Simulated scan of single mutants.
Amino acid sequence: MKVLDLQCPDGHRFEGWFASVDDFESQLSRKLVECPMCGATHVTRLPSAPRLNLSGASETPKASSHEQAAQWQAHAMRVIREVLDKTENVGDRFAEEARRIHYNEAPSRNIRGIASAEDAQALVEEGIDVMPLPVPAALKGPLQ
């Protein structure tokens, strides 16, 4: 198993696990490798150090800024997936459905959808809590 450090044109860094380097190259040529944050299929391989198991090492090295960014991105993706999993997508009816729920005209539940900035502001002014959630392109399809 080969673990490769990858990056999309937007600078999102992530890991990919492949059976071999040839497997990575084959999937890349068929545009099967995509950024989990934005869905870009133009992905480049970054240089990576070999992973060494140094038993007896007394001090755990601090995470590099690249590792910290990758950890943050992975955490953000988990949070977004959880929100998507626990909400009902009402699409472009978001503002209407949020009002119906707020005024007890529809069952109370967690919803998500699309609203213009003006609609979102109007909901806030009516006392209806809303929160923008930028969803990466890779998660806009069915969850796997």
Rank of each mutant, 00 (worst) to 15 (best):
M1A: 13
V3I: 15
L4P: 04
Q7L: 07
C8H: 09
P9G: 06
D10C: 11
G11F: 11
R13A: 07
R13T: 08
F14E: 06
F14Q: 04
E15W: 07
G16R: 05
W17T: 15
V21I: 10
D22Q: 13
D23C: 05
D23M: 06
D23P: 02
E25N: 11
L28K: 12
L28S: 14
L28R: 13
S29T: 11
R30D: 14
R30T: 10
R30N: 12
K31H: 11
K31P: 00
K31A: 14
K31V: 01
L32C: 02
E34Q: 15
C35V: 08
C35S: 04
P36V: 09
P36R: 01
P36F: 02
M37H: 01
H42F: 07
H42W: 09
R45Y: 00
P47H: 10
S48M: 09
P50G: 01
P50L: 05
R51G: 10
R51N: 10
L52Q: 15
L52R: 12
S55P: 06
G56K: 06
A57E: 12
S65T: 09
H66T: 13
H66G: 11
E67Q: 15
E67T: 04
E67P: 00
Q68K: 13
Q68I: 12
A69S: 12
Q71M: 11
A74Y: 09
H75L: 12
A76H: 10
A76Q: 15
A76L: 13
M77L: 15
I80S: 02
I80R: 09
V83P: 00
V83E: 06
L84R: 08
T87K: 05
T87H: 08
E88A: 10
N89C: 07
G91W: 10
A95P: 02
E96P: 00
E96V: 10
E97G: 00
A98S: 12
A98V: 07
A98P: 07
I101Q: 07
N104G: 01
A106K: 09
P107E: 13
P107K: 13
S108C: 05
N110M: 09
N110P: 00
I111V: 06
I111C: 06
I111Y: 03
R112C: 04
G113K: 07
I114T: 13
I114C: 04
I114M: 05
I114V: 14
I114E: 13
S116M: 08
A117L: 12
E118Y: 03
D119A: 14
A120T: 08
A122I: 05
A122E: 09
E126P: 00
I128S: 01
D129H: 09
V130P: 02
M131C: 13
M131F: 13
M131I: 08
P132W: 03
L133P: 03
V135I: 15
P136R: 01
A137E: 14
A137T: 14
L139P: 03
K140R: 15
K140M: 10
P142A: 15
L143K: 08
L143Y: 00
Q144D: 13
